Computed example of a mutant assay.
Amino acid sequence: MAKAMARHILVKTEAEAAQLKKRLATGEPFDTLAKKYSTCPSGKRGGDLGEVRPGQMVRVIDEVIFKKAVGEIHGPVKSQFGYHLVQVFYRG
């Protein structure tokens, strides 16, 4: 069965997610921004979602984790919870 390791930052607005993505592009650490801005409980762990299997996350996030390029920061991705920035760092 497929599995992946990913992290994300969840915020309320698309504008906030876009601004954080710009900050990540300039080299600010993902985990630092997740701890400071993410509204998800995973923010306390630097956004780490741990090992994820297909179907464990909401559909739009699941699609990013299992279909988009590893290593890149994807998003903003809208879900019923808000806007996500997602980075997959392992998929097997």
Score class of each variant (00 low, 15 high):
G47T: 01
E14S: 11
A6C: 13
C40M: 05
R45K: 15
A18Q: 14
C40V: 00
A18P: 00
K12E: 14
G71P: 09
K12C: 03
D48N: 15
A17M: 09
P29E: 14
R7S: 00
V64N: 03
V86I: 15
L20A: 10
E72P: 01
D62M: 05
V52Q: 08
E51R: 13
S79P: 02
F30D: 00
L33Q: 04
G50K: 09
L20S: 04
G27Q: 09
K68Q: 14
G27R: 06
P29V: 04
T39F: 06
R59L: 13
K21V: 02
H8Y: 05
A15N: 11
R59S: 12
G55L: 12
M1D: 11
V70C: 11
F30S: 00
V52E: 01
G43Q: 06
I73G: 03
C40S: 15
L20K: 02
K68S: 13
K36P: 02
P41T: 07
R45V: 02
G75T: 02
G55K: 12
G43D: 04
R45G: 01
Q87V: 00
G75M: 01
L10I: 04
K78N: 04
E63K: 13
Y37S: 10
F30M: 08
T26W: 10
Y83M: 07
M5R: 15
K78L: 09
P54A: 09
F66H: 07
K78Q: 14
C40P: 02
I73P: 03
A69V: 09
G75I: 00
G82N: 07
D31Q: 13
E72K: 14
A17V: 00
P41R: 12
G92M: 11
V58Q: 10
V11R: 03
S38F: 07
A2H: 12
M5D: 05
V64I: 12
A25C: 07
K36M: 11
K36Q: 15
R59Y: 12
K44Q: 15
K3P: 00
K44W: 02
K44R: 15
L85I: 01
Y83T: 00
V86Y: 04
M1S: 14
A18L: 13
E16V: 04
G47I: 04
V11S: 08
L24H: 02
M1E: 13
V77K: 06
L49C: 15
P54L: 12
K78S: 10
G82D: 02
L49I: 08
Q19E: 15
R91C: 07
H84V: 00
A25T: 01
L85W: 03
Y83D: 06
T13H: 10
G47S: 06
P29H: 10
D62A: 10
L20V: 02
G47N: 06
V77M: 03
A2R: 13
A15V: 11
V52I: 15
G27M: 11
K44G: 12
S79A: 14
A15W: 05
S38N: 07
V11C: 07
H74Y: 07
E28T: 08
G46I: 05
E63V: 06
V11D: 05
F30P: 01
K21W: 00
L20R: 02
P41A: 11
R59V: 13
T32F: 09
Q56R: 11
G82Q: 09
V60M: 09
G46R: 00
P29C: 01
D62Y: 06
D62K: 08
